[in-house]
Design a binder for these strands. Structure first.
Length: 296
DNA sequence: TGCATTTAACCCTGGGACAT
DNA sequence: ATGTCCCAGGGTTAAATGCA
């Protein structure tokens, strides 16, 4: 679609939402209503100055204004993950397939994009700008969990219980196979949690597009980690400390050790090489590099 | 070698459920 | 009311690495 038409339609949409006539908006903007009409219908060009005035009159910051105008297209294109980035040789939890992951990743990206498109279309900010960063990652983690529930054999566990997901069809020692999900924006971070449990873990790294607020998965890694109480634990206890200044107590936390992080990195099942430069990551392992590893 | 960039390590935040 | 167990994570910076 022609850019003038796209922006023009968005101007009309915002104007109607604000219940302004063309004449009223034109007066606020300092242009004639004929000029505004021409812009709304994609006939006339417009300068940056006029766009700024329009955005101001419509109470929508210019960056969000531009993003909003183009957001509907971003919800229908460019939000599916690149299949070439999957590494099918990497071992996955029992019953999990890369096709399940692909569907869940696309569903997650799509949900966030649809929320953002609605927000931007009404002149609001994209979703991540309303939410503190760590909590937004929590949101992504929750949406991704639900998408895996819908698109894989791994189903919701009970609320706030470990692990996040279980595969009831695969039982080991009477217990269903479990999968713990973490999501983060920090590339290659490994795991940081508050339980340090044993079992399958999935770390999903994503990026946030600046203007649209949409998310894009760039790295998924799987590993079976040893719990903090095991002899060769993949977690290190960080402890519960009191901030002397605020009195705030830090929640008990476990970080994955470099050995645990190496296991996870070996299990990189999806990696966008344009966003993740793993070649400089450190490793700590006892045995040989597995054939499926990105380091092999 | 010196500067720029990236990573690993460490410190930090919010909340709820439940037993005592 | 308090403590302990869970849930969800990010931000900063010294050190390591890349590169001209």
């Amino acid at each position: 679609m022609d850019t003038k038409v796209t922006i023009g339609r968005f101007i009309r949409k915002l104007r109607e939402q604000k219940q302004l006539t063309q004449e009223q908006l034109a007066t606020k903007t300092g242009i004639t209503y004929q000029h505004l009409s021409g812009m709304e219908n994609g006939r006339e060009n417009f300068t940056i100055d006029i766009l700024e005035s329009l955005a101001r009159a419509l109470v929508c910051p210019l960056p969000q204004f531009i993003a909003g105008a183009f957001a509907p297209e971003s919800t229908t294109s460019g939000i599916t993950v690149n299949r070439d980035y999957f590494r099918p040789q990497v071992p996955l939890p029992p019953g999990m397939k890369t096709s399940h992951l692909e569907a869940a990743m696309n569903a997650t990206q799509s949900i966030v994009a649809r929320i953002n498109a609605n927000l931007l279309a009404s002149g609001a900010k994209p979703l991540p700008e309303y939410i503190q960063g760590n909590n937004f990652s929590g949101l992504v983690s929750n949406v991704f969990c639900d998408a895996l529930n819908d698109h894989s054999p791994y189903k919701h566990n009970s609320h706030q219980a470990y692990p996040d997901l279980i595969n009831p069809a695969v039982k080991k020692g009477g217990k269903p196979a479990g999968l713990e999900i973490k999501s983060t924006i920090q590339i290659g971070k490994g795991g940081e949690s508050h339980n340090g449990h044993s079992g399958w873990h999935l770390i999903a790294c994503f990026q946030i597009e600046p203007l649209t607020g949409n998310v894009r998965f760039i790295h998924l890694m799987f590993a079976v980690l040893n719990g903090h109480s095991q002899s060769e634990a993949d977690w290190t206890y960080v402890g519960s400390k009191v901030n002397a200044a605020t009195g705030s107590r830090r929640t008990e936390t476990y970080n994955t050790t470099l050995a645990g992080v190496t296991k996870l990195r070996d299990g990189s099942v999806f990696l966008d090489p344009t966003a993740v430069n793993f070649k400089r990551w450190r490793q700590k392992r006892t045995g040989a590099v597995p054939a499926y590893s990105i380091f092999a």
